[in-house]
Amino acid sequence: MKPFTLNHAQSANEALASLAGGATAIAGGTNLVDLMKLQIATPDELVSIRRTGLDAITPENDGLRIGALVTNADCAADLRVRKSWPLLAKAILAGASPQLRNRATTGGNLCQRTRCGYFYDTTQACNKREPGSGCAAREGFNRIHAVLGTSDACIATYPGDMAVALLALDAVVHVEGPQGARTISVGEFHRQPGDDPGRDNVLERGELITAVTLPAPTGGRQIYRKVRDRASYAFALISVAIDLSMEGDRIARCALAFGSLGTVPWRDPAVEAVLVGERPSPALFDKAADVLLRDARGFGKNDFKIALARRALAATLHEATKG
């Protein structure tokens, strides 16, 4: 671990001042500290934002405002979340371990970096870690990698669960920075790698996530299906978040997001368009999968994800639409 200084900001403004001076924000540190031990992240100055008071969950309009420092454990346990946005609680509880969820925060989790083994191994080429060094994963052991949204430079996934649920719930990320406050929809928060995979998201230098807001609940049926190699404490091979409402025997409304399928949490309006207004059937589910996977491309070890996505989608739609 490279030597670093650590300061505790007592307010969001103090934190922003430190960030403007080049500091890196640390909240739970569940990801950042690992990266620092391996010297994948080598900040000289850390500013802890744990004392900034951004840790409340408050009603806002008909929705909910979740402070950036609300821990994953607290968020998943919140009665309002569990009652009206159960998808979010389910997704959070599908990830990590109780110890990690006690520590990890809402804002930090959105900024979680990939689990690509080549990113984590400094002996290997990785454009995300070291721009221009190449991508060893492309022709390497890429079982957990993306089949959508990849580029020549990078095929790594965003590995988390929470953001997938937030995406299906149309959540909004609230940010403050040198240019003032702004909001970013979760769907626009993560960046596809393109030719600049080093930047996982659209946060600008000096910006700090202050909260995530959820719009009014839809009242739909919400399911988070996480497909993985072991029953717990494993990143998703594919996850599906759904918020679906029926009217009679037809699908009236449907929000669908996928984790670990693309380089970013993946939502495709065209898939939802195929489903809305239709009677659920295996054939319809297949058609939705055709649209979802129209541009899917495997890299060898992850080819199976294309077939798996089709079946995971069918399973989720089947569960969400059956009587």
Binding site: G117, Y120, D121, F141, D229
Partner: peptide, 29 residues
């Protein structure tokens, strides 16, 4: 069901060299 050392056959390095990616059964398994 889960355990496997994954080697990159191009340079011989072990890809999954930690307990997050080398999957031993956890309680839920």
């Amino acid at each position: 069901l889960t355990e496997e050392l994954a080697f990159d056959l191009r340079d011989g390095h072990l890809v999954n060299h930690d307990l997050a990616e080398y999957h031993v059964p956890v309680h839920a398994d």
